[in-house]
């Protein structure tokens, strides 16, 4: 018996997707692999292939409203189509296996499958044909274009074939990275509290503000402003914004005052380097960076980031720890 799924998302579905976006239970948000029905499909109805990540599954079924079709869900270990295709779990082997175990040919009278275009990284269409007899058509990149694709007789425009990375696409990725960065920053605050017991000039609000600014510049501002920041390397873009933020906050807090030159210099080395590193991590979330490019970028940027951070952290610590402790 084939389960029919709704094309309307429930409150639970929407809540679940919010949680996943904020990193809560993100890695086991799955649906059962296998064959599903949308509407009242017949033997001639189209077959859409998808991943068993629930965010993916929900996006697809929402966009299939009004269609009668089949949905063949592959076991991608609850990972989205593109990432799973990169790993090979959304791949030729799993597709051929799932066609057999779901007994797809018992339900359909044709031999065409519509795969999301981004699945092509893991699927070899001619090999699928050879091994299963099914023809693979690559549909549009975005599920929201499926209706138009069907209306055009299973043809996709160049625009439908191109991956975007819009402001919204970038912003939905921010929470997970930001939460991760904050998690890694909290122990540092603990160390600073401890250091304050011995500090000549204790760490205070200004230091926390500069640090928070660096994290914000690397994980929020850089993704948001990505195409508008000069240059092409992510680490460079992050460094530029980190430098602006650090200089801005230092200026506001009066840390450029004469006796804080050491602290200012250390801060200007350390904090932009942190932003730079965090921004470089965003290459993993982006939709257009090549491994060769990222490799080249890291080889240039990482030694600079590490040395600037080390020297900067030394200066900042020195500025705080050395000197006469003020007696209140």
């Amino acid at each position: 018996m084939i389960e029919t799924v709704s094309t309307k998302l429930s409150f639970q579905d929407v809540l679940g997707s919010m949680k996943a976006r904020f990193g809560i239970g993100r890695m086991d948000y799955a649906v059962e692999p296998g064959l599903y029905a949308i509407g009242k499909p017949a033997g001639s109805s189209p077959v859409f292939v998808s991943a068993n990540y629930k965010l993916t599954f929900d996006t697809l079924r929402k966009n299939l409203a009004g269609l009668d079709c089949w949905l063949l869900v592959l076991d991608t270990k609850s990972v989205n189509v593109w990432c799973a295709a990169g790993k090979g779990t959304f791949g030729t082997d799993e597709l051929v296996r799932r066609i057999e175990t779901s007994e797809l040919s018992k339900y359909v009278s044709h031999n065409r499958l519509i795969l999301p275009q981004l699945g092509a990284t893991g699927v070899s269409a001619h090999e699928v044909k050879l091994r299963s007899g099914f023809d693979v058509d690559y549909g549009p990149v975005r599920a929201s274009d499926i209706k138009e694709y069907i209306d055009m007789g299973c043809e996709a425009t160049r625009e439908m074939r191109t991956v975007q990375f819009s402001l919204w696409d970038r912003l939905v990725l921010v929470p997970v990275d930001l939460i991760d960065a904050v998690k890694h920053t909290l122990p540092v605050l603990g160390v600073l509290l401890l250091a304050n017991q011995f500090a000549a000039k204790p760490f205070g609000k200004a230091d926390v503000a500069v640090g928070a600014g660096a994290v914000f510049a690397g994980t929020v501002l850089t993704p948001a402003l990505l195409p508008y920041i000069p240059g092409s390397a992510f680490s460079w873009k992050g460094w530029l914004l980190g430098l602006s933020c650090t200089a801005g906050i230092l200026g506001l807090s009066g840390k450029f005052a004469k006796d804080d030159k050491l602290l200012a210099a250390g801060s200007l080395l350390l904090y932009p380097a942190i932003s730079s590193y965090l921004a470089m991590n965003f290459t993993g979330a982006s939709t257009y960076t090549s491994p060769s490019g990222v490799d080249k970028e890291i080889r240039k940027a990482l030694p600079l980031i590490v040395s600037a951070s080390a020297v900067g952290a030394g200066l900042v610590l020195g500025a705080h720890m050395i000197g006469k402790r003020k007696v209140k």
Binding site: A285, T289, V294
Partner: peptide
């Protein structure tokens, strides 16, 4: 093409 993931964390 030498395919792979363009992710800094993964490469490091």
């Amino acid at each position: 093409v030498s395919a792979g993931t363009g992710c800094a964390i993964a490469i490091i």
